[in-house]
Design a protein around this nucleic acid. Sequence first.
RNA 1: UACCCGGUGGUGUAAUCGGCAGCACAGAAGGUUUUGGUCCUUCUAGUUCAGGUUCGAGUCCUGGCCGGGUAACCA
Length: 571
Amino acid sequence: MPDADFPSSEETSEENEGEEAVRRDFLRTIIAADVANQKNGGRVQTRFPPEPNGYPHIGHAKAICINFEIAREFGGKCNLRFDDTNPEAEDVEYVDAIEEDIRWLGYDWGDTLFASDYFGQLYEWAQQLVRQGDAYVDDQSIDEIRAGRGSRTEPGVDSPFRNRSVDENLGLLEKMRQGDLPEGSAVLRAKIDMKHDNLGMRDPVMYRIRHVAHHRTGDVWKIYATYDWAHGQSDSIESITHSLCSLEFVNHRPLYDWFLDKLGVHHPQQIEFARLNVTNTVTSKRKLRKLVDDGLLAGWDDPRMPTLRGMRRRGYRPEAIREFCRIVGVATVNSEHEMALLEHTVREDLNPVVERRLAVLRPLELIITNWPEGQVDQLEAVNNPEDPDAGKRTIPFAGRLFVEQDDFREEAPKKWFRLAPGREVRLRWGYFVTVDDLVKDDVGNVVQLRCTYDPETRGGQSPDGRRVKGTIHWVSTDHAVDAEVRLYDKLLLDADEQAGDDKPALNPASLEVLTGCKLEPDLATASAGDRFQFERSGYYCVDLDSSSDGLVFNRTVSLRDSWAKIEKKGK
RNA sequence: UACCCGGUGGUGUAAUCGGCAGCACAGAAGGUUUUGGUCCUUCUAGUUCAGGUUCGAGUCCUGGCCGGGUAACCA
């Protein structure tokens, strides 16, 4: 019997369908249709193809997530293949680093693959194209080739070597391969059309001669395939179904297709999507390398770097980066995301899982004048209000404390809830205190607050129901542990990375090192990688440089600060 | 300006066959709160323009405008 309060079964199924068909981006829409149509037998195989010449950054994270997630969603696999066709720029150092970073991000693949493993097959296919009359050896110099290609508005002209015989081409190609020809003396070119509207189709170079050792194949090869000649064929060898790459390769797709069609081999579909840009940072491997080489940053893992290892060291968890990549979506229009969104996902990820601690970054002494001499109180504090299972800890409290300089104003502005002369505030997990007097140094800086506390307010509540607006954090002077704290801010001053600007203006405040910070004693045993929320301040993690001699913390991201907004507005 | 892409609130991203422009972040206001955190509520704000087709256009067509990519023996 139908119940009026429930939708009919028909409606229910429609709703469910609606929810499952949800928000599919254009890539997943295309792939889902291919699967439905039994293209490639309904199989999905993707790949992430980095060149081992640098460290992956947030932009690569998007590509990694897209390829691995799509493969997983459609029950397929994603290969990791190094596009190692340019030995001059590449190194095994990067192979190891890239593998490590992708694993850290949370993905795994079977065997690591290398385009260099396909050099033999590629060479045979090149010979096939020569035999078909689809490729030829060109003896022109690099400048002659460039000049002959024409321009965006001028058609190119045929190379004088364009119509050599198959046998001559085959012989020359073999001599190139064996190293009988000097570097730069010849290249193998696809024979397509020098008047083609797409410059990339004007007889593109397939092989160049390089008498240099390759990090994996040693000195076996004297010729190396270009990207265009290697990439699609590598995809084909690996039975890739969907070759997802960034927008700048749209112009290469006709060539990608041309090679595969001429060869008559498995033909993956190349689909391009917009790469990820983020405001106030750099997502260009070249520019990142320059920042490191110029000594402007400490290295590829400098916590200011948008590299995976930089973000890892800073304290970002892979979960946050994956969520960010999911949430930014994917489309075919270039875009730039606000750093605030990344920071939002980082906070959202950390909030429920990290324990809270009290830490005073810029200490100001607070003396409780009516505290019983020599008494130490052990106060109970909740480790994480978001997670009851995180339990509680005790914090020592006494008559000499440190509080944050920023939590005191001699002249309290409007809506100020914190310390000021005559004001009563709550010390987190402790007592209510009231500022009675100030001690200043010779130049008038406040160096000590003299307060009285209300013994009835232990734990933070007053029996008379009296309320205070502000709660501030503190650390007992005699129990505090010292630490260095590194504060990070946006890398670039400008939100937008200027195109072509090799020297973007770095934010001079991107790093601020604080020493003599005072932490609650529990933190003395924290070790590298441990994460905490310093209450009312931000999320922090123990840096690699930290040791038992000297604790070092990185600020991962600050908490949202609505007081800062109020104050800013008041000005 | 040769070819190719692309234009949905401030930033991104959705909208089945052409059928109520939704979501997130950011911003604003309020509530809860022993973190000015979290959480909750509400609000602000958008289809680049001009035509055309249509009962009906973010979606299709034409043109304009604007933005991006492309002339390595890099990837």
